[in-house]
Simulated assay, not measured.
Amino acid sequence: MRVTIDNPASAPRPLGPYSQVARVELDDGGALLYLSGQIAEGADTAAQSSGIFETLAALLKAHGATLDDIINIRTFMTDLGDLPAYAAVRARFLTATPPTSTTVEVPRLFRPEALIEIDVVAAVQAA
């Protein structure tokens, strides 16, 4: 098994001292991609969610994957009352079979202005 830790130049830079992608090469030639939690700027949950999915798409693309390759998504929200806004954005970006999912409410995120943070795992099929 080979693991590569990466901050792709084609995606937005991380907001702190961490890596955004861990790529685990599988024996069959495929890979699992573990993406760090992402936040984005925006006035509300919908705007932040859109920005996050755009960043996730860029990170995945850098590793030969798309949002359709997501197999697990974890969402941390500071107010579950904003779940309908997030769900509408998520439905625009995740159009394939829905991945496994966890959504939890947290009292705060690492940046005070962040309303939502999302991390994902994606599976890249062997070529």
Rank of each mutant, 00 (worst) to 15 (best):
I5K: 11
I5V: 15
I5W: 12
D6C: 11
N7V: 08
N7K: 03
P8Q: 01
P8V: 06
P8W: 01
A9P: 08
S10M: 06
A11R: 01
A11T: 04
R13G: 10
P14Y: 02
G16Y: 09
G16W: 09
S19C: 12
S19A: 15
V21G: 00
A22W: 08
A22H: 06
R23M: 10
R23K: 14
R23Y: 08
R23F: 08
V24E: 11
E25V: 12
E25I: 13
D27H: 12
D27C: 09
G29Q: 08
G29F: 13
A31C: 12
I39M: 14
G42F: 04
A43P: 03
D44T: 09
D44H: 10
D44L: 08
D44Y: 12
A46W: 04
A46Q: 01
A47N: 01
A47Q: 09
S49Y: 05
S49G: 06
S50P: 00
S50C: 13
I52V: 07
I52L: 08
E54Y: 05
T55K: 12
L56A: 01
A57G: 10
A58R: 02
L59E: 02
L60T: 05
L60F: 02
K61I: 07
H63I: 11
G64C: 07
G64Q: 04
L67S: 00
D68T: 12
D68V: 10
D69L: 08
I70D: 05
I73W: 03
I73S: 06
